[in-house]
Design a protein around this nucleic acid. Structure first.
Lengths: 199, 199, 199, 199
DNA sequence: AATGAATGAGGTTTCATTCAT
DNA sequence: AATGAATGAAACCTCATTCAT
């Protein structure tokens, strides 16, 4: 019965928020933002619905918090530790990270997709998308600049968009089709194509 | 003065249904299925909400009717008149048709994307998706079989999935980004890549 | 192509009204007033719903018209041709007529019952009920006055109410239970009871 | 300050549910099931319409709940404490209980009557009617078996139906006519008739 | 921090009624 | 006389949010 110290409260608070975010991600991913009810989420998190409003201002705020917490998922995709590696090597790492993230954070990306396609709610992702743009595009641009060193920047930009479209498309199909989608085979095929282009 | 004839009624029906479907496609695409209200649609179509229920059983039925009417959009993408053309030629036509359809039926495809990503409503697309599978996959399979005639069927299938992912990704990005997305440049780049692989 | 004479129009009009009333009685009896829709009735009568409003002001008016037409059903129950018959004889005829009417005009009485029990619509029956009161009560009063000639008018009135309750109850149960209800056996039993009381 | 305990919630729930059922019984009885709106009921109960849906799944469920709660009303009619009493004594108690219940639970029986006569909703009473059949019929059968010990079972059954019809008819007329209906006088008259038959 | 009772705006749906032809 | 397209009031129901405890 020792009184809790302030940092205990903070940690409890943080833990509670986390468990709500986790439950909400699952429920939003499963039912879609609109069909997921606050009660669903509360049940999944084993708390009362009132408590959700203790931690989040609104259902919208809860959604936004999920994506605020999602930046690390994104960073992991882009993590290339060895800087000395060449362009193809970087693409390989990128693809590896990407496939891994799709599998590990399936629900998060599923939710992301359903939100980004939903015109009314997609502005909730603006920060996330801005961050994505600010980090992902430059990285890809540098990689493809190295890969095709004789091209002009418009052409490089097209290559970047094409690669991005490919990743988005793979993610899209994987999320819709699920486990049966041969992620690994496709990853290898993509890599092979970029390798063959290099020579 | 003379009472309306059955064919008059039929034409009124057809016209009204079409104008509702048109308005609904726009509104659903703009706001998303759940955030679009029947009143929104009625206002867009300049009719009363009651009339919508005169022609469609429910909001769901209206959505389904939109996709039932969407098969032709899909067929147009796959239309390859000249059968004597080679694999690359077919891919080129396919890409041309695809890009054209994305531009011409932007709202339809935007709606399609938001629905397919929406877990709760996506089963409304089952017929559409089945049709897609039954027509699109075989066509791509035959094209890529010709293109890579030394590969086994699993590899061909992977090529098919890759091409499909590429198209889905391009559609995805175009729909999110809009007019600014360089569809034409990307199309040409894709085609160039497949051409270079052929040799 | 001889032009129709005025009386033809009148007769056509009458016939049309009749067929609507007949259909409406069936549909109202089957679904209840509120759950019966004008479209149901129009379909049953093989006409358009608009035409119903040509003949009747409203759904309510249609209901009222059914009961306005129902007086003869009621009169038939009370028809006792031979005036020289004694009280018991009259009761017997009354019961015979009553049972016959329940069977012949089942739907009408079923509708009557559902309306009379429905607080919101029952005032539509006021005329019918008034007529009932004005004709039925005096008749029963005279019969029971004869049957129990030594009783005072309050006692006679109680006998009248009891007999009425018995008939209402039999009708009620018959309508709910349907064909299986042993109307004839019950009729005979009632009659026997009144006969035994006579002595 | 201290949060509410589970038993507090339970008591709030019980109280609220009861007050809704009470209000709903009144409103349904007054306007009929279809003409009674959820808002009417909420106003009568001095709560919001949302709360009704917090406790009941639907308007239909609310109706059914009323009848689920009505079994005790029914049991009270059949309560005959003294088993040593003879058939006539039992009939007397039955009639007393019946008249008392009609007066005490007027609104409930009025609602019952309007529902049982309403073809579309009457199946909501199936449980209630089954219970009625399973309890009421056997009791009456045993009473009339004792009263007319020389009769065969078909005749006894007819007597049972006749008595039931009489009660239904009395209830029917009382509910329609209201306070002015001389329930007591009629009850006495019925009893006298059965007594006179006994000898 | 925690609960769940209570609210009410807003959405879908029904259907009697009107009206142009 | 006849049709059925078109209207809109009114009903049911959902659910994010508030609040007393």
């Amino acid at each position: 019965m020792t009184p809790r110290k302030p940092e205990d409260f903070a940690s409890i608070r943080k833990k509670s928020k986390q468990s709500i975010i986790k439950a909400a991600t699952k429920i939003f991913a499963k039912y879609g933002f609109h069909n997921a009810s606050i009660v669903n989420i509360a049940e999944k998190a084993n708390i009362s619905k009132g408590l959700i409003y203790h931690y989040f201002d609104s259902k919208d705020d809860l959604l936004q918090s999920i994506f605020s917490q999602g930046f690390p998922f994104f960073d992991e995709i882009l993590k290339i530790d060895n800087k000395d590696i060449n362009a193809i090597g970087k693409i390989e790492i990128l693809l590896d990270n990407f496939v891994k993230s799709l599998q590990d954070n399936f629900e998060f990306w599923k939710l992301y997709q359903s939100i980004v396609s939903n015109p009314t709610v997609s502005h909730r992702l603006d920060d996330f998308k801005k961050y994505y743009e600010s980090v992902f595009s430059p990285l890809l641009f540098s990689i493809f600049s190295e890969l095709y060193d004789n091209k002009d920047s418009v052409q490089i930009q097209t290559e970047v968009l094409l690669f991005a479209a490919l990743m988005d498309g793979v993610a899209f199909d994987f999320i819709i089709i699920g486990e049966k989608y041969p992620l690994e085979a496709i990853k290898k095929n993509i890599l092979k194509k970029y390798k063959s282009m290099q020579k």
